[in-house]
């Protein structure tokens, strides 16, 4: 197997608040290879977005990346001087945000906003720059791209705006593309088109993609591998197919059981009891134990280590038995 393009190990990002330290990201490890899509799945507040922003070192002011490494082709992004991060951001790792209505600057034209990363990362100027911007808009399927250069964000639909954001993301083109719930705020029909577009772009540029979502249906369609996050930790990771057919962690099982049409057909839908944990007061031991139907006394005391359930599937749970 090819060595991973991006390898994240033991990443921890904490937020210091008046009420204590929140372990937003708590020892997260994963890898992504070129051309591969990793799904990062979890409830709101489970640390998915914070993990991604940590890779770009753009966490909010109150947050600190306290430990870990993020190796992009062997170079640790977390150790780079800040000045070098501008050649990582947008150039090697690009990101698409959730809401296209608010992620474009309302007072600048689409043209200016698409040209900007091209000028910066490819050093193009003048007519060549405009030509490339038009190319990029065409590549993401925006009709009459020349005319669109003069348009302002408010003159475009949500789907078109998100395509424009996609055009900016592939400007460099990058090695890694992070898509943070890119279709959550789009109509269902537009969603499907946009996902297809992301697939195309990935294939064309051989991108390693991290796809953040809480939509398990999208994960099944988009991601070869998946990492399930709960309260800042990855509780289970492995190939999507394998996890969908044989989830090892009770949280994954509950998550899949709460969605219609995934896994075993025609069974009763179940809800996960209780609430996602309060970020400032994460339960001791395994953070899922208060909601877990199979919890043992031990689960409340000691956090389970990561165990290989199958050669390529790992879970953090006291109940799972190591394979082999």
């Amino acid at each position: 197997m090819a060595p991973p393009l991006l390898a994240v190990r033991d990443l921890s990002t904490h937020i210091v608040t008046k009420w204590g330290t929140v372990r937003a990201v708590d020892g997260v490890s994963f890898t992504v290879a070129a051309g591969e899509t990793l799904g990062l799945v979890g409830e709101s507040g489970s640390g998915k977005s914070m993990t991604c922003l940590s890779l770009l070192r753009l966490v909010p002011k109150a947050a600190r990346i306290v430990a870990g490494e993020a190796l992009l082709e062997g170079e640790d992004l977390l150790q780079l001087p800040e000045a070098d991060m501008t050649r990582v951001r947008g150039k090697q790792i690009a990101m698409i945000l959730q809401d296209p209505m608010s992620s474009l600057n309302p007072v600048f034209t689409i043209g200016m906003q698409v040209r900007e990363p091209v000028a910066q990362h490819q050093g193009l100027r003048g007519a060549a720059l405009t030509r490339r911007a038009v190319e990029l808009l065409a590549a993401v399927g925006i009709p009459s791209p020349e005319a669109r250069l003069q348009a302002f964000p408010h003159q475009m639909s949500g789907g078109m705006r998100q395509r424009a954001v996609g055009a900016m993301a592939i400007a460099a083109p990058p090695r890694v593309l992070i898509a943070d719930e890119p279709t959550t705020s789009l109509d269902v029909t537009i969603q499907a088109q946009y996902l297809r577009l992301l697939r195309e772009l990935q294939a064309r540029h051989n991108l390693a993609m991290i796809f953040v979502t809480h939509d398990l249906g999208i994960v099944a369609r988009m991601c070869e591998r998946v990492a399930i996050m709960y309260a800042g930790r990855i509780v289970e990771t492995g190939p999507t197919r394998r996890i969908w057919s044989a989830p090892a962690h009770p949280y994954t099982q509950a998550l899949l059981g709460s969605v219609p049409g995934i896994g075993v057909a025609r069974r009763k839908l179940t809800a996960i009891d209780g609430q996602p944990p309060d970020a400032a007061a994460v339960p001791s031991g395994c953070a899922f134990h208060p909601r877990c139907p199979h919890a043992l006394p031990r689960c409340a005391v000691e956090a389970p280590p990561e165990v290989a359930v199958a050669p390529d599937q790992k879970a953090r749970c006291w109940l799972v038995t190591p394979h082999g």
Partner: peptide, 14 residues
């Protein structure tokens, strides 16, 4: 604090 400022930083704008 706006998302578009976040995106500008993500794009690598200094």
């Amino acid at each position: 604090d706006a998302e578009y400022v976040k995106l500008a930083r993500i794009k690598g704008v200094i």
